[in-house]
């Protein structure tokens, strides 16, 4: 009968988990960048004058955000066998969250008062300049906490990348657990690491929310 909690085993696993955690962090950062940029692009495409662009973009957004990211990962993984799992993982996760973020941006853009557009017109500011200097800075400021929450949420979704063999923390935990026929230590530690990383971050986002007056 083995001990319930084996400190030696935990000690052995920790470096592996931390190594995996670095991959988790890297995936979160890259996927966030993809989502934050692509989300804005999608939001702006959904506002163009051209219905021929708006409709397919809308359909794409609806479909992607209504279907499981895990299945999306499988699907892209098998369709593009040449790409590295990490590349596929961060791209799919990034696109998935971009569809959420596009809605946030859209609400943020709609939340900029009409008077701001009118003032820009009255000053003859060109359209591009109006977006860059007037509308987007205000819209993005409004949605920062929401974007922050999505990044945290994405962080907690990175274990899905394990299903396409990205060596992030949960992949390492599963492998180690399988090798030693003991999962308690690795999964408990993985959960703890997630909590330690995500809780303070969400407190930060909450403070940001308060400071921006939400």
């Amino acid at each position: 009968m083995p001990k319930v909690w084996d400190w030696d085993l935990a000690g052995q696993a920790l470096p592996l988990l931390l190594q995996g955690f670095l991959v988790t962090l890297a995936a979160t950062v890259v996927a966030s960048v993809v989502a934050i940029i692509l989300g804005l692009v999608l939001a702006m495409l959904r506002r163009t004058r051209f219905a021929a662009v708006r409709a397919p973009v809308r359909a794409f957004v609806e479909f992607v955000r209504s279907t499981p990211v895990m299945v999306q990962l499988f699907a892209v993984y098998v369709v593009f066998p040449g790409l590295s799992p990490f590349t596929i993982g961060v791209t799919v996760l990034g696109i998935h969250y971009a569809t959420y973020m596009s809605e946030v941006y859209r609400a943020g853009i709609d939340g900029v008062p009409k008077g701001q557009w009118e003032a820009a017109t009255a000053l003859s500011l060109p359209r591009g300049r109006t977006w860059r200097a007037v509308i987007l800075p205000q819209a993005v400021r409004n949605v920062l906490p929401a974007l922050g929450n999505y990044v945290i949420s994405m962080f907690k979704d990175t274990p899905f990348l394990a299903v396409i063999t990205v060596h992030e923390m949960v992949f390492q935990a599963t492998t180690f657990g399988g090798d030693h026929f003991k999962y308690l230590e690795v999964f408990t530690m993985a959960a703890a690491i997630f909590l330690i990383a995500s809780y303070p971050t969400s407190l930060l986002v909450r403070r940001l929310e308060k400071r921006l007056g939400h």
């Binding site: 008077g115 701001q116 200097a133 007037v134 205000q138």
Partner: peptide, 8 residues
């Protein structure tokens, strides 16, 4: 409503 740009 003035419509100054609050970000500037």
């Amino acid at each position: 409503q003035f419509n100054l740009f609050p970000n500037m």
